[in-house]
């Protein structure tokens, strides 16, 4: 690559960064056991997807990619509210529960 093509980051740079971010989030979901940290890793993956949406909106010149990010933000907020509600009610019943202890829905 020449120095000129390196001067301005293209949307490919952002897409590669989003892929790496998604990969780190996915590994985190697989490796960690604290339910709250699992949620944070899901947020990482959602952010990677948001970054992809905005990068493609930028590349294709289409504002609807940014509109999609808006909806992802709303759904992520609702997901966190419901998910943390579930975590609160589980840990209130069984303190110190990790994802391994929650292999059955029966309380």
């Amino acid at each position: 690559m020449t120095a000129v093509s390196l001067a301005v980051p293209t949307s490919t740079y952002y897409l590669v960064l989003a892929a790496v971010l998604f990969g780190i989030g996915a590994v985190g979901v697989l490796v960690r056991r604290n339910p709250l940290v699992l949620f944070m890793c899901v947020e990482l993956m959602l952010n990677a997807v948001n970054l992809t949406f905005v990068a493609f909106a930028d590349r294709l010149g289409d504002i609807n990619g940014q509109t999609a990010v808006f909806f992802v933000l709303v759904v992520a907020a609702a997901e966190v509210v419901v998910g943390l509600g579930i975590v609160v009610s589980i840990i209130r019943r069984r303190p110190g529960a990790t994802a391994d202890d929650l292999n059955e829905l029966k309380g």
């Binding site: 909106a57 930028d58 590349r59 294709l60 010149g61 289409d62 504002i63 609807n64 940014q66």
Partner: peptide
């Protein structure tokens, strides 16, 4: 292709 849409 770049710039398919109506532009940002």
């Amino acid at each position: 292709p770049a710039g398919l849409g109506s532009g940002i």
